[in-house]
Nucleic acid binder design. Structure first.
Length: 479
RNA sequence: CGGGGUGUAGCGCAGUUGGCAGCGCACCGCGUUUGGGACGCGGGGGCCGGCGGUUCAAGUCCGCCCACCCCGACCA
């Protein structure tokens, strides 16, 4: 059961987050430093995320497979940037069956290498391409500072790995999957995201180009919520993924990879959560409607429960995820707070007065207090609830989008940029040099988040050095 | 790995000049309650982070070690 009040977001955002994850029973700390236990409620949420994504992957022609957890250490060393990027965070297995291993194995930090190795075996002809595979699994990256869902040493994700005959096809795939992520984030999670390209310093180790969906959290920090990489021929060359084209000429394949992790749960928490707890978008919520029956004694109970059960069945049969909270050892008030902590989008109360008046009370989680509570007729309850859930989903997206937009700024000069990145994002022209990027980071702790894809080129000058620039970038502090 | 902090019941904490280890919440039992976190009565629960030292006596004083948290360097 959820316990007493949360630390408020304004008091200490970080404490608020940590307490919320524990009290909503999404996850718990494990005995292994930096690892987490995802509890049933958190995992149900993840399963709904998986289902929504998996459907989209299948619709775009991908199939699932699984590759090993352990990878020969030498594989990681085949791609120069890749090894440099990942070496510091590898977990390495040196002993197996009591014997020192001839070659150490690394616990996968990501699977480009082993999948590249397999693809080289499977790809001989242009007819073998494209290969469009996704894997659901876990990976391990030894992290210095961890935080549940946002950064843990082991995390759960999906990683898509594709190989193509042409550069153009691979580039299209990269952007197609970025679109899938953005569509998922916006329409399922109600998390407004900006699609963009990562700078050279921020990109994936081994990629030619990394793209991202960036979301703004409730404290205005940015969270990279999904990434899609164009890997060029880097991994194809490292693992000799070669094929004969139609002219019988040997070519290296072009590959992509893309991933979205349980970090998305952190994004949902920090995009929608409030001081009472979690607020979940109806489309992903493990429980969409919680029913709280109210009665003082057996007589009232015998009048209320048959009607409550009838409504429960109607909602259930309509395909809604509904739960009846029939606990008798806690008061209704306790239950309200309990389910608010867990972010259930809609609460349905039914008591003796409702039985008399043929009504029920509906309280929406995204609109706190009396304002979000309405009394409606029991007639047509399924349609009423469905409409409300749709409204909540749309309302959450609108609210989050308005919040983000009101915290994006267009600073006039460097001094103003330094100011605005303390309270939100700066969208500014940038010459795309590492020098200017690191100057901003050193003086503000804000990094480049992405160069938004949906922007029209405009003539401007770099906010740092003043050199000509055609594109704007987002600067912001990030998780 | 650098800087700061904290370790006492499941959680949050108190513990005075060294002298029987406590409080709130949670948990268990019984009864009364139940439309916004109910109440009464009765219970259970401790290697006081670890090791060593000082002392008649250490949660308390001293030394060493360990763990965790926060702020930095690294990241989906």
């Amino acid at each position: 059961m959820a316990e007493e009040k949360l630390t408020s977001r304004s008091e200490n955002y970080s404490d608020w987050y940590n307490e919320l994850v524990i009290k909503a029973e999404l996850a718990d700390y494990s005995p292994v430093r930096g690892c987490m236990v995802v509890r049933p409620y958190g995992w149900s949420l993840w399963e709904n995320i998986q289902a929504a994504l998996d459907r989209r992957f299948k619709e775009t022609g991908h199939t699932n497979a699984t590759f090993p957890l352990l990878i020969p250490k030498s594989f990681l060393e085949k791609e120069k940037e890749h090894v440099e990027g990942f070496s510091p965070e590898l977990a390495v297995v040196t002993i197996g069956g009591g014997e020192e291993l001839e070659e150490p194995l690394v616990v996968r930090p990501t699977s480009e290498t082993i999948i590249g190795y397999m693809y080289s075996k499977w790809v001989k002809s242009w007819r073998d391409l494209p290969i469009l595979i996704n894997q659901w699994g876990n990976v391990v990256r030894w992290e210095m500072r961890t935080k549940l869902f946002l950064r843990t040493s082991e995390f759960f994700w999906q990683e898509g790995h594709t190989a193509h005959a042409t550069e153009q096809e691979a580039r299209e795939e990269t952007l197609r999957m970025l679109d899938v992520y953005a569509d998922f984030a916006i329409n399922e999670a109600a998390v407004p995201v900006i699609k963009g390209v990562k700078s050279e310093t921020e990109k994936f180790a081994g990629a030619v180009m990394s793209t991202t969906i960036e979301a703004m959290m409730g404290d205005t920090k940015a969270l990279q919520s999904g990434t899609s990489h164009f890997l060029g021929q880097n991994f194809a060359k490292a693992f000799e993924i070669q094929f004969s084209d139609k002219n019988n000429e040997l070519q290296y394949a072009w590959t992509t990879s893309w991933g979205l992790s349980t970090r998305m749960i952190g994004a949902i928490i920090m995009t929608h959560g409030d001081d009472k707890g979690l607020v979940l978008p109806p489309r992903l919520a493990p429980i969409q409607v919680v029913m709280v029956p109210i009665y003082k004694n057996d007589e009232e109970k015998s009048k209320v429960m048959p009607i409550a059960d009838g409504i429960f069945s109607q909602l259930k049969n309509a395909g809604m995820r509904v739960k009846m909270d029939g606990r008798e050892e806690v008061t209704p008030g306790y239950k309200y707070n309990d389910w608010e902590m867990r972010g259930v989008p809609l609460r349905l109360e039914i008591g003796p007065k409702d039985v008399e008046k043929n009504s029920v009370a509906l309280a929406r989680r995204d609109v706190p207090g009396k304002e979000g509570k309405v009394f409606v007729s029991q007639e047509g309850i399924v349609a009423t609830v469905q409409t409300l859930l749709t409204d909540i989903q749309a309302g959450m997206l609108a609210k989050a989008t308005a919040f983000r937009d009101s915290n994006m700024f267009d600073p006039k000069d460097f001094n103003e940029l330094v100011e605005v990145v303390q309270k939100g994002w700066a969208v500014s022209h940038w010459c795309e040099s590492k020098e200017c990027e690191s100057k901003v980071k050193e003086s503000t702790k804000a990094s480049t988040r992405c160069i938004p894809l949906d922007q029209t080129e405009s003539q401007g000058s770099c906010i740092v050095c003043g050199k000509p620039s055609k594109r704007k970038v987002i600067f912001g502090k990030s998780y």
